[in-house]
């Protein structure tokens, strides 16, 4: 058995190694570019010198107002939400070992949306700008508890997906009920508009709500990436590699509920980012679940912020919603990618 094993041929296989090493810096640069573009592009175009002047404090008040009260919060919310959705999608695909997984699979998106819809429906949202996001996060956590109760002690990903679909469908049904019973067309319109997803007119308060949630969520999701790698050889295999599956599951689901809950709470439900970003970055990595996480986080931030810039630039009679743009943008990218990659599935 040893005869034809030649140790000299064991060079570390570094096919595409430089490309992989360049991925993170490239994505970071991408984040910087879209952040700057997001600050300068819009109905009023602010060239870079004017931005710099506004930041150093000696600029016109109009530029300052646009920059700090409109575009900065919007840019930050876009980066936070996009990064969170991308990361959550990558973690879930790895954990469930299912390329179709995204944050909505386990009901995280729908249940957070339900809280927001309830806030609009009962008029609670008008009390304070923070009420809607807080209710949204709260209902996301309630759904998490429900998910644990439904999935029980089973460790199979299928049980969790089925329980997630039950939770997600229930939340979806409750949202429909709210639309059905809405007291007037304006309330229904408001709910619909929120469900389409948007990060327009966000304030720093939204940033302060989203920031701790997404940071905590991301920390929980990124706690032990190697557990996701170990799951590639199945549950028994992972446990025999020393992975504490129950702890991993608790951390991931809590991270998902808090992180995605916080993101959906400030942006509405924005689809496709969590699904497609991991697929887009995966071929640029060694395809192990842990290697996809950070690129997905950065890629999600770039994609969502990019889509938000498009929302501002595309001239339409009534304002385009971000969730609509990500879906239209996402599907063709996804299909091209799928046709190119389907060989490897």
């Amino acid at each position: 058995m040893l005869e034809n094993a030649s140790p000299t041929r064991f060079a570390r296989p570094r096919f595409g190694h430089t490309r992989r090493r360049a991925l993170i810096p490239l994505l970071l640069a991408g984040v910087l570019v879209v952040a700057l573009a997001s600050m300068s592009l819009g109905p009023v175009s602010l060239p870079l010198p004017r931005i710099l002047a506004a930041m150093s404090g000696n600029a016109d008040t109009v530029a300052r107002a646009i920059l700090f009260e409109l575009r900065l919060p919007r840019t930050l919310v876009g980066l936070l939400v996009g990064g969170m959705l991308g990361l959550a999608g990558a973690v879930l695909q790895g954990y469930l070992r299912n390329p179709l997984a995204e944050p909505s699979v386990l009901g995280a998106s729908n249940s957070a949306a339900l809280g927001a819809v309830a806030a609009i429906y009962f008029g609670v949202a008008e009390w304070h700008v923070a009420m809607l996001p807080l209710l949204s996060i709260g209902s996301g956590l309630v759904a998490l508890v429900l998910l644990f109760l439904l999935a029980g002690r089973s460790e199979s990903p299928l049980t969790l997906i089925l329980a997630g679909i039950a939770v997600s469908t229930l939340a979806g049904a409750a949202i429909s009920l709210a639309l059905n019973l809405s007291p007037n067309p304006f309330a229904a319109m408001e709910i619909m508009a929120w469900l389409l997803g948007s990060i327009e007119n966000r304030t720093m308060e939204h940033v302060w709500i989203a920031l701790p949630c997404t940071l905590l969520g991301a920390a929980l999701l990124l706690h032990d990436p190697r557990a996701l790698d170990a799951l590639a050889i199945g549950e028994d295999g992972a446990r025999s590699l020393g992975v504490d599956l129950r702890g991993t599951r608790r951390r991931l689901l809590a991270g998902l509920a808090i992180g995605v809950g916080g993101a959906v709470a400030v942006s509405g439900s924005i689809g496709f980012v969590g699904l497609i970003v991991p697929h887009l970055v995966r071929p640029l990595t060694d395809r192990s679940p842990s290697a996809v996480l950070l690129p997905s986080l950065l890629g999600g931030a770039v994609l969502l912020s990019g889509a938000d810039i498009l929302v501002r630039l595309i001239p339409t009679s009534s304002e385009l919603k971000l969730g609509v743009v990500t879906a239209f943008l996402g599907v063709p990218i996804f299909l091209v990618h799928l046709l190119r990659e389907r060989r490897s599935w």
Partner: peptide, 13 residues
């Protein structure tokens, strides 16, 4: 431990 079935969920090297 080498489990039965040689499961592998991702196309890894």
């Amino acid at each position: 431990y080498l489990p039965q079935g040689h499961t592998l969920h991702w196309p890894l090297t």
